[in-house]
């Protein structure tokens, strides 16, 4: 307080400018927060309104009367084409698809990364480069032969077929994650363990795996988000009954039979988004690390 009083005129003006700038900054940040939040807000409020209120009310008002009917319909009654079972069966399809696919691709990625980072042999770098390259192809270029291959293997249109596809095209990224993590572990560790008589798997199991928790979390989150949110593989390689949730959601929204139920569409969209949103809220730090891991040098 005393210090404030003794400030001279020009300093307090500069101070005022600084404070005004600060306010402007916060106002701008707040505006952008609104821009990002508005669609979510509209989705939630729309899903809680009755159709009647949607038709007569406005997009941005809160529901006059909160009703969960739309959520019930979205979960167990909405029509995807001719079937009207809601999202529930497809939600479980996605769970049955994502859990094994995430587990397998993470496990394979960990072993691959361990080899490429710590057990280099001639050609290991070339193999890694080839795998890395595979991360960047537009999947359109493999859709047609994969459709035939799944047919030949007898798993076309099945959930195991989709698991297979997600594992195959996921290991490039998972290998990259683990490789980049394991190269930071000094190679003397492996040498010392070998001298002590530990073998390849023993060293992996007792030394590397216990150190790997952060990268396992990053990889699992990354893979889960990718697989849960995937649409291209889901729509190309599934059939009625085995579709993942994103495909079912799209079918519900674009179903042309009956009245357009916007509140059901929004409830269904939120249901489809909840698992990944939940992961993001609980483990955001790891989510961001996964996003940036592939793209920031390091």
């Amino acid at each position: 307080m005393m210090a404030d009083l003794s400030l001279n005129q020009s300093a307090s003006e500069a101070n005022f400018g600084k404070i005004a700038l600060r306010w402007l900054l916060y106002a701008l940040l707040g505006l952008f927060a609104l821009y990002y939040l508005l669609p979510l807000f509209v989705m939630v409020t729309t899903s809680l309104k009755s159709l009647e209120e949607i038709r007569t009310g406005s997009l941005v008002t809160l529901p006059r009367e909160v009703t969960f009917d739309a959520w019930k319909t979205a979960w167990s009654g909405a029509c995807t084409g001719i079937q009207c079972e809601g999202l529930r069966p497809y939600f479980w399809n996605s769970v049955l698809l994502a859990v094994p696919a995430v587990f397998l691709s993470t496990l394979i990625g960990a072993l691959n990364g361990y080899v490429v980072a710590q057990w280099k042999f001639k050609g290991a770098n070339l193999i890694f480069s080839l795998m890395l390259f595979g991360c960047f192809i537009p999947f359109q270029v493999v859709l047609l032969p994969m459709a035939r291959m799944l047919g030949l293997m007898g798993i076309a249109g099945t959930i195991p077929g989709l698991i297979f596809v997600h594992v195959i095209y996921g290991i490039g990224f998972t290998t990259l994650f683990f490789r980049n993590y394991y190269v930071t572990i000094p190679s003397e560790l492996v040498k010392a363990a070998k001298v002590d008589g530990a073998n390849f798997f023993r060293i992996f199991w007792s030394i590397f795996l216990p150190l790997s928790l952060p990268i396992i979390v990053v990889t699992v989150i990354w893979q889960f988000t990718q697989i849960w949110n995937d649409f291209l593989f889901g729509v190309s390689f599934s059939q009625a009954g085995t579709q993942p949730i994103t495909v079912a959601l799209n079918n519900i929204v674009n179903s042309t039979t009956g009245v357009k139920e916007y509140n059901v569409d929004m409830a269904a969209a939120i249901i489809a988004a909840l698992p990944t949103l939940f992961v993001y809220v609980v483990a955001g730090k790891y989510f961001i690390r996964g996003l940036t891991a592939g793209s920031v040098k390091g």
Binding site: P39, T246, A269, T276, L291
Partner: peptide, 14 residues
């Protein structure tokens, strides 16, 4: 950053 966690199908629907 949260929109990045959503499926593009959800984003498109919204």
């Amino acid at each position: 950053l949260y929109p990045m966690a959503l499926s593009m199908i959800v984003t498109g629907t919204a």
